[in-house]
Amino acid sequence: MKIVTFTTLFPNQVRPSHGIFVETRLRHLVASGAVSSRVVAPVPWFPFRHQRFGRYGDFARVPATENRHGLDVVHPRYPVVPKVGMNLAPAMLAQGARGALARLIDEGHDFDLIDAHYFYPDGVAAVQLGRYFNKPVVITARGSDISLIPRHPVPRRLIQWAAANAAHVITVCDALKTELGVLGADPARITPLRNGVDLEHFRPADREPIRARLALEGFTLLSVGHLVPLKGHDLVVGALPLLPDATLMIAGDGPERPRLESLARELGVEQRVRFLGVVSQPELADYYNAADVLVLASSREGWANVLLEAMACGTPVVASRVWGTPEVVASDAAGILMEERSARGVADGVRLLRAGGIDRAATRRYAEGFSWEATTDGQLRLFSRIMQR
């Protein structure tokens, strides 16, 4: 079976961790031997490559083509119009990518199906392209594309149209399937297929040498994610005065960093907070192993991969009770769901977890139930049914 994976959420040379969960799922699918894929991962057009232009300069530095882990990836450009661009984005995205898909056909990859990730604008654009090339489209809903974007009237209507005209929809958790049903999508045409975790890369290691190398002492919390408000890093920093013996590592970068540093100073805990900046996937396993608890205080999550990555390293979690997270943290061995999403809720969750005793071996055993095999099998069955139909 030949497919095209279509998404703006895909790693590249400039942003190697961007959308890595999409790449990981695809690599496991291709490894089955039943599917070959080409990746079309559009990026916004921008004329200047200099770093002083921030993320737009990053877009300009993304190569036109690259190969990642044996996957051929093309990065066509599409225009982004400030302020009004949200409503126009699917049409712009489809127009920018049409030539890339046509070239794939000309080069011998006459694909059977478009595998799209993220509903808006990617999924909407994919359905438009599917109609143009007369190919079925499967869209994977991943989180804020369904939990947040439909609050805007035009994107909401386009998401509803795409759901009605796609061959099938995949969600990464049951909560997103329920929300799509609220939006009017047919539940019979929606299949939840959760993300898995790489159990070989994320696995328990000898913690003491790692902690010594990282100069860690005492009880250590870890918070991972882009430094933006929805990730709730401020709540974890705010919990430190209530956890006087705990230190905190924050992995990630983003616009919230100055505010978080200021908050730590205001609370008098700046000596107990370490900002790690961007941490690569290979390095993350060490930080998960070094930590005693991972805290994820997000206001929304589809399926938070960091939870499973930490658990696979034997590190239990304290997490907010939002969207798909209760489906991930579904056992005492996994960790604790906060009673309230607040600094006190974080502190109470950490104290409750410590009081019950931390069994890192049990946490690892729990994570072993989340391999990628079931997800790959589910995709293959679904894609085969669509091809037969």
Rank of each mutant, 00 (worst) to 15 (best):
G356P: 00
L260R: 15
V278M: 08
S331R: 03
A347T: 05
D286T: 14
A334N: 07
L230E: 02
R344T: 13
E283P: 02
L276D: 03
G252A: 12
P241G: 09
V236S: 03
V306K: 05
A297S: 05
S280N: 06
R360G: 02
E270H: 13
L267G: 09
A347M: 15
L267V: 11
L353W: 06
A355R: 07
Y288H: 07
G314H: 14
A334D: 08
G324L: 04
A239N: 14
M249R: 15
L308P: 01
G345F: 10
D332I: 00
L284S: 11
L230C: 01
L307I: 15
L352G: 02
D359S: 00
V322L: 02
V293H: 03
L230W: 01
T315S: 13
L260I: 14
A334K: 05
Q271S: 08
V317F: 14
I336Y: 09
L284K: 15
S299Y: 03
E283K: 12
R360I: 11
G324I: 04
A343I: 03
R259H: 09
V269T: 11
V293W: 03
S298R: 09
M311K: 00
E327Y: 04
E283Y: 12
R354I: 11
V318T: 12
I250V: 14
P255C: 11
K231G: 01
G302N: 05
A264W: 08
N289Y: 09
A330N: 06
G345T: 08
P258C: 11
V346K: 00
A334Q: 12
P255T: 11
G268Y: 11
P326T: 03
G357V: 05
A285S: 07
G345Q: 04
E340F: 02
A361H: 02
L337V: 03
A334C: 12
G314C: 09
G314Y: 15
A319G: 05
A361C: 00
S331K: 02
R257N: 12
R321Q: 06
E266H: 10
P241N: 14
D253S: 08
S298Y: 08
P241M: 07
L352D: 03
Y287S: 06
V306D: 06
V317K: 06
S299H: 04
L230M: 05
E283A: 15
P282V: 09
Q271C: 07
V279W: 14
T315M: 10
I336R: 12
E256D: 08
T325A: 01
Q271D: 12
T325P: 00
D332N: 03
S342F: 01
G357I: 04
E283M: 15
Q271G: 15
Y288D: 11
A333Y: 04
D348P: 01
A285E: 04
G324W: 05
L276R: 02
Q281W: 15
P326R: 01
R341P: 00
